[in-house]
Computed example of a mutant assay.
Amino acid sequence: MTSGTVLTIVEQALEVGVLLSAPMLGAALVTGLLISLFQAATQINEMTLSFIPKLLVLVLVLIVTGPWMINLMVDYMRRLFISIPGLIG
């Protein structure tokens, strides 16, 4: 196994990690921004106000994108396991 092969595996793992986290992080970012705008407009300075909407949005995003996330992980792991004999020998 060469250093190029290791770098390719690490690059693919990072790519899958970014793809898996992007929907959740994007939804949390947009929800937090909307709640912050609402708090600024109404001058409500409650720190716990953003927790429940973010939690609900993240659960909804996980329900919607969950099957895609699982398929992405299964495909990556399948490709990785299939390539193990070629990596060793």
Results as ranks from 00 to 15, higher is better:
Leu14Glu: 05
Arg79Tyr: 15
Tyr76Ala: 11
Phe38Tyr: 14
Gly4Leu: 10
Ile84Gln: 04
Leu33Tyr: 05
Ser83Phe: 04
Gln43Glu: 11
Pro67Asp: 03
Met69Asn: 06
Leu29Ser: 08
Thr5Ala: 13
Pro85His: 00
Ser83Asp: 09
Ile35Gly: 04
Gly66Trp: 00
Lys54Glu: 14
Leu62Val: 14
Leu25Gly: 09
Ser21Thr: 08
Ser83Gln: 07
Asp75Arg: 02
Val6Phe: 10
Thr8Cys: 07
Ile88Lys: 00
Ile44Asp: 11
Leu7Glu: 11
Leu87Met: 06
Thr42Leu: 11
Ser3Pro: 15
Thr42Val: 08
Leu19His: 14
Ile9Phe: 12
Arg78Pro: 12
Gln43Asp: 10
Gly86Phe: 07
Ser50His: 09
Ile70Lys: 10
Val10Gln: 03
Ser83Glu: 08
Gln43Met: 10
Met24Gln: 12
Asp75Phe: 01
Leu87Ala: 05
Pro85Asn: 00
Leu29Glu: 06
Ala40Thr: 13
Pro85Glu: 05
Thr48Met: 13
Leu60Trp: 10
Leu80Ser: 09
Met69Arg: 04
Met73Gln: 14
Ile70His: 03
Gln12Pro: 01
Leu29Asn: 07
Gly89Lys: 11
Phe51Arg: 01
Thr42Pro: 00
Leu33Asn: 03
Thr48Gly: 08
Val18Ser: 06
Leu55Asn: 07
Phe51Trp: 01
Gly89His: 12
Ala27Asp: 07
Ile9Arg: 12
Glu11Ala: 15
Ile88Trp: 00
Leu56Asp: 07
Thr5Arg: 15
Ala27Met: 07
Ile63Thr: 09
Ile88Tyr: 00
Ile9Thr: 08
Ile63Lys: 15
Leu55Thr: 09
Ser83Pro: 02
Ile88Gln: 02
Ile63His: 12
Asn45Ile: 02
Leu34Gln: 09
Gly32Glu: 01
Gly17Cys: 00
Ser36Pro: 03
Ser3Gln: 13
Thr42His: 06
Pro23Thr: 04
Ser50Phe: 10
Ser50Gly: 15
Val10Tyr: 02
Met1Glu: 11
Leu72Cys: 04
Leu72Asn: 02
Gly66Phe: 00
Thr2Pro: 04
Met73Lys: 09
Phe81Tyr: 08
Thr2Val: 10
Leu20Trp: 03
Arg79Gln: 14
Thr8Pro: 00
Gln39Gly: 04
Phe81His: 05
Leu58Arg: 09
Val16Phe: 04
Leu37Ala: 06
Leu19Ile: 12
Pro53Phe: 06
Trp68Thr: 15
